[in-house]
Structures are given as structure tokens and as C-alpha cells.
Amino acid sequence: MHHRWNRLSAIAAGVMTMAAATAQAFPDRPVTIVVPFAAGGGTDITTRAMQEPMGKSLGTDIVVKNTAGAGGVAGVAEGARTRADGYTLAMAPVGPLTTQPHLRKLPYDLDSFDYVCLAYSAPSAFAVRRDAPYNTIAELVAYAKKYPGKLTFAVQAIGSIPHVAGLALAEMAGIQLSYLPVNGDGPAFKALLDGTADIFVPHVSFLSKNKEQVKGLAILQPERLPNLPDLPTAKEQGFDIDTPIWGGLVAPKGLPAEAKTKLEAGCKAATEAASFRKLMDDLAQPVAYMDGKAFEAYVRDQWTRNRRLLESAGLKQE
């Protein structure tokens, strides 16, 4: 009998401490950020660069957890399923938030989340082989019209942002492209080099790193980049394609206001930290930040646009 009471009181004490803990100011323990890709990729590196400055701003430690799988959907789903107390966030990338939901049934939708901040956004570009017979989108389109069905477009995954960019181009130009699904940037680059594919969409930083082997036709955002002034935008060539590769922090719906404010501030501080800026510089990636409200509006906007593009390509599924 005694034992039982002891155990019960221990549990009661535990519950009380937990209740007390929630009454305390956020955060009183480490915050976990789920990265939906394996460690070592771009999203992972960016998140880890935020770890230290964001932790300092929040006054607690940040733990990065990698849950890879299903093109990032698995990790974002994990982020949607946790308790809405602000102690678990997901670094949600563009694909799992705005393209994957149109391709298959997912265990979350846009209303599953509270949006904390946009953490990074890298412009993308059309890349072709150095020796390709076209230097502008117009020349590429002319080539595609002259040789119908000849151009192959390597996509890192069906329904990914590069795929969306290709669909947009094909739709606007009225050309036919064959899509070759590969497993990411490296294989896409390989396909370009060995002649299997003719065009693909990498981060813009990829162009400067590999300029002996590839050339860029257009940067896929409205303005030119200061450090790549010679790369024209698709928009100025008459094709309004804007497909950055971005990601931001999300929490399950119902995040307490206090936690949200603090997390937003922490994210902002992280993206402004010198160490983070240096890494972005090394990756040739501009720093991008939006607060939760702007980020949510942006996500919804992108979601609608991608839905339309995937739908008109016949990829959308109910």
C-alpha cells in the first residue's frame, strides 16, 4: 500500500512540476528543430548555422533532429504532429509545403501549422551545358521548336520546384519538354554532363561553382543578383518565372502567442548573426527573412501558384 502511495505522490509531484514548468516563461528547456532531410544537405547546414545564434537569443539550446524521407514530407509531418508548445519546430522547405500536397495525400495541410519565419531563400536558375547551342531562353525555345521532343529536362523529383520551373517554361513558351527524374542535384548535374539531359534547375550558386562546365540562361527571380550581374532574369526575357528554393520554421497550429513572438525574434536574430551571414556568403546565397505573418501569406501564395502549374501539367491528384 505504501509503495502505491509513494508512486502516486511521485507522479503527482511530477505533474505539478510540469504544470509549474508551463507557467514559467518560454523557453525553459531546449527547442528541437526537425530538419526533414539527412544531415549534410543545404537545409541541414543552414539550420545548423542558425542553431547557435537562435539559441542565444532564446536563452536555451537548440537541438537539430534529422528526420529524412519522402522528399522531406516525413520530417514536416513530424513537425505537424508534435505538441503545440513551441518546443518542437520543423524547418519546412518549399516542396513539402507547396508542391507535395498537390501530388498525394499527406498527413498535414497548410492549416496544420503556425508559421514562425522564412529562414532562407535561394534563387534558382536554368542551367545548360557550356557548349549548348543556346544562350538565352528565346534561343532555347527556338531550338525546342525546331527540334520538337528533343529537349530533356532533368528534375530532382517529380513535382519538385525545378519541375515546376520547367512546367512554367513549357507552358509559357508552348514547347514540349521530356522530364527525366533523377535523385537530386548531383545526379541532375551528371545527367547534364553525360548528355542524358539538356537543362536543369539548380541553386544559382551552383553556376558560379561549375562555370567551366555549365552556363546559366536565366535567374528565376524578378531581379538580377548583385554578385551575378551578367545573369539576366527570366522576367526580362519575357518569362515571368520566380521559383526560389526556400524554407522556414513552422510549428503545429495553436502555438502560444508568447512562444511565437520569442521564436520569431530568435529566428530573426539568427538570420542576422555574423556567423550565419558568413555561411550564406560562402554558399553564395542571399539572406532572406520574413516574420510569421508574411511567411504564411507567402506560403499560401506559392501553394496556389504551384497547384495551378501542377494541375495544368496533369500531375495533380485528388
Partner: peptide, 13 residues
């Protein structure tokens, strides 16, 4: 490769 790039090495021909 990712780490090399951060180190300022640009692999390629």
C-alpha cells in the same frame, strides 16, 4: 563535396 565548397574548394576540371 558540400564541405569542400564551404572550404572554398571548387571541384571540377
Amino acid at each position: 563535396l558540400g564541405a569542400l565548397v564551404i572550404q572554398g574548394v571548387a571541384p571540377g576540371p
